[in-house]
């Protein structure tokens, strides 16, 4: 990146760790087609080598570079400075609702632990030696699964969710969205136990449908709709079981 640009951006970057921190101010030259990740990388390479942050693919696939930019969670590698900058100023912070390791790098352990809690792993019943299951891409189940499947686990939905902020045990939009995707996968065999896992005290019924997750998801998924699907599914499953137990 060249330093020849005359315009500069004032960038406030949160520095600190799990015990607290404060903002450092940097002046960064503005460049055409500059992303927020470019800004952070420029600071680290030119102004402060000790700045910690996380990234990998730089093309919006890995989901590792999400940060709060001017108070909104964003994937920084695909967020253009021009679209989010206000008065030549940027404020960059670590993702909300997650513990900070250092500076802009969050500890994602609880995020992925909840993904596991919601039984986000596919459970099949066949082996690789058997024929591939024929699944119509037009079936309602597959369409529902496809609508939720492009999650890159960037945790932007988790950072935008007020219910997570209020209830630290809440599984969160990403884990529940994954569960909904698997519930609609006709090859999956763990539906019953997964429904029990997402219907608990910190599960899908805690969602207020505020739609922060759907507003900020960089892949334009709608976890709120997935969670609403889980609510319907858990309720209908509950009523079906009650009916069967009474008429058995």
């Amino acid at each position: 990146m060249s330093d020849s640009s005359t315009a500069s951006i004032t960038v406030h970057v949160w520095r600190g760790n799990s015990e607290g921190g404060s903002f450092d101010e940097f002046q960064v030259p503005q460049q055409p087609s500059q992303t927020i990740l470019d800004i952070v990388t420029w600071i680290q390479r030119n102004l402060d080598a000790g700045l910690s942050y996380r990234f990998a693919c730089r093309v919006g696939m890995c989901g590792s570079c999400a940060m709060m930019v001017n108070g909104i969670p964003r994937w920084t590698c695909r967020t253009h400075v021009n679209k989010v900058m206000r008065d030549k100023q940027l404020t960059i912070e670590p993702l909300r609702n997650l513990p900070v390791i250092k500076d802009l790098a969050c500890d994602m352990s609880e995020f992925f632990a909840k993904w596991n809690q919601a039984q986000g792993q596919f459970q099949g019943s066949t082996t690789r030696d058997e024929k591939i299951a024929p699944i119509s891409p037009c079936s309602p189940e597959r369409e529902a699964a496809n609508a939720a499947i492009e999650c890159i686990n960037c945790a932007i939905c988790y950072a935008s969710c007020d219910v997570v902020a209020w209830n630290r045990d809440y599984l969160g939009p990403a884990a529940l969205n994954r569960a909904w995707s698997l519930q609609n996968d006709v090859r999956d065999t763990a539906g019953e136990s997964r429904l029990a896992a997402v219907a608990g005290d910190a599960g899908c019924h805690r969602c207020h449908s505020q739609q922060g997750c759907a507003s900020y998801c960089p892949n334009e998924l709608n976890p709120t709709a997935s969670i609403a699907g889980l609510k319907r599914l858990t309720a209908s499953d509950f009523l079906r079981r009650r009916y069967r137990s009474r008429h058995a």
Binding site: A199, D201, H205, K231, T234, A235, F238
Partner: peptide, 12 residues
């Protein structure tokens, strides 16, 4: 299953 019961009660 308390959460499901409460959810149903609220919706109904």
């Amino acid at each position: 299953m308390l959460e499901i019961r409460l959810y149903l009660a609220q919706r109904i």
